[in-house]
């Protein structure tokens, strides 16, 4: 790891010894860090989540949820009154959850680990990466302290303790959302409610599909986030593509992979979308209307005047929360279908 040659070149005396010693120290420390991996695998029902067995015996009574998708999923399962704390909302919560949301402590970004412990949760649900050493600690660490954890299965890190490191996330589909709902429902004893929510989501999507059955039109859609120099777009393997296709459209950025990849204005002109959805983020009080100034700027920009979406003025604000894989995804399909086929959806 530390080359004794480079050390010698840097003039360090006894470079071989130094290299060996420092490597030894690192290995020993790593070994110490790993020693907390023994999960309690004794009796009692468990659920598998990202390769980790989560004890499922008792229903958790004090839930901490981090990231918007996890927060709303907990609310959707009717567990809003068991929430002791939430963190990291991307946008305003759905109106039906607003009251319950007010009651729990809210943190704009992840609180310190000590703060989390102060809230004495027995379950931590995370939508993105919370279980890293510099956030809440690994899931094994928390398990030792008697705190159960649940990670959205579409965002499993490669190993416990690692973060959301993928620059190109894997495929995320609606099925992942359903799986998480059902798993979390089973863990928290709200299996029935979970089934209801899943059924509702499926029926919403089926309803949209029905109405789209007769139309052959598939408008080209782009979901973008504006920046100073170019745009960040949602690409092919993001759930946004799924949502767009279910809503009867086509993702104009199909040849770009990833979530929020940077492209230039010329690329946008070349792709020529017919409908543009402009993302808004990040804060507990940010909603679609926050995209209005950006939409106005784009409409006035002479460089973009040739794009179909700008000519027809088909730009809409779209919350980041709705574009992410969550309980909102069925609603997202409906909303996008409304933008793409306004004649079919009132």
């Amino acid at each position: 790891m530390v080359s004794s040659v480079s050390l010698a070149r840097a003039g360090v005396p006894f470079p071989g010894a130094v290299a060996a010693l420092s490597t030894l120290v690192l290995l020993v420390s790593a070994g110490c860090a790993d020693s907390g991996q023994d999960a309690a695998s004794d009796a009692g029902p468990t659920l598998d989540n990202c390769g980790i067995e989560v004890p499922a015996g008792e229903e958790p009574q004090r839930i901490f949820a981090s990231y918007h998708n996890a927060i709303e999923m907990v609310h959707a399962l009717g567990l809003g009154d068991r929430l002791v704390g939430t963190a990291f909302l991307d946008n305003t919560v759905l109106p039906e959850y607003a009251e319950a949301q007010e009651k729990a402590e809210y943190y704009e970004s992840l609180p310190s680990k000590e703060e989390l412990l102060r809230l004495k949760p027995d379950l931590v649900v995370s939508g993105y990466g919370s279980f890293t050493d510099d956030a809440f600690g690994s899931r094994a660490d928390l398990a030792e302290l008697g705190i159960r954890t649940w990670q959205f299965s579409s965002m499993c890190p490669a190993e416990d303790g690692l973060g959301q490191a993928d620059l190109v996330p894997g495929e995320v589909t609606m099925d992942d959302v359903y799986a998480d709902l059902e798993g979390l429902g089973e863990l928290t004893g709200t299996g029935e409610r979970a089934d209801e929510v899943v059924a509702e989501m499926r029926s919403t999507i089926d309803g949209v599909q029905e109405r789209l059955a007769d139309t052959a039109e598939r408008p080209r859609v782009g979901i973008i986030s504006t920046g100073d120099d170019g745009y960040r777009v949602l690409g092919s393997n993001d759930i946004a593509t799924d949502v767009i296709e279910l809503a009867g459209g086509e993702n104009v950025f199909d040849d770009i992979s990833g979530r929020l990849t940077q492209v230039g204005a010329e690329e946008l002109i070349a792709c020529d979308p017919e409908v543009l959805l402009v993302l808004t983020c990040c804060g507990a009080d940010v909603d679609e209307s926050d995209a209005d100034p950006e939409i106005t700027e784009m409409l006035d920009d002479p460089a973009l005047a040739g794009i179909s979406a700008i000519e027809d003025e088909r730009l809409h604000g779209f919350t980041f929360a709705t574009s992410s894989a969550s309980v909102r995804s069925a609603e997202a399909v409906e909303q996008v279908a409304g933008f793409l086929h306004p004649d079919l959806f009132e």
């Binding site: 970004s109 920046g227 100073d228 120099d229 170019g230 204005a265 983020c281 990040c282 804060g283």
Partner: peptide, 17 residues
């Protein structure tokens, strides 16, 4: 966080802004 999100793109420099 919003400031960080905006700032990290400004801080690399760009001719198109």
């Amino acid at each position: 966080l919003t400031t960080l999100n905006e700032f990290r793109f400004w801080s690399v420099g760009s001719l198109g802004a």
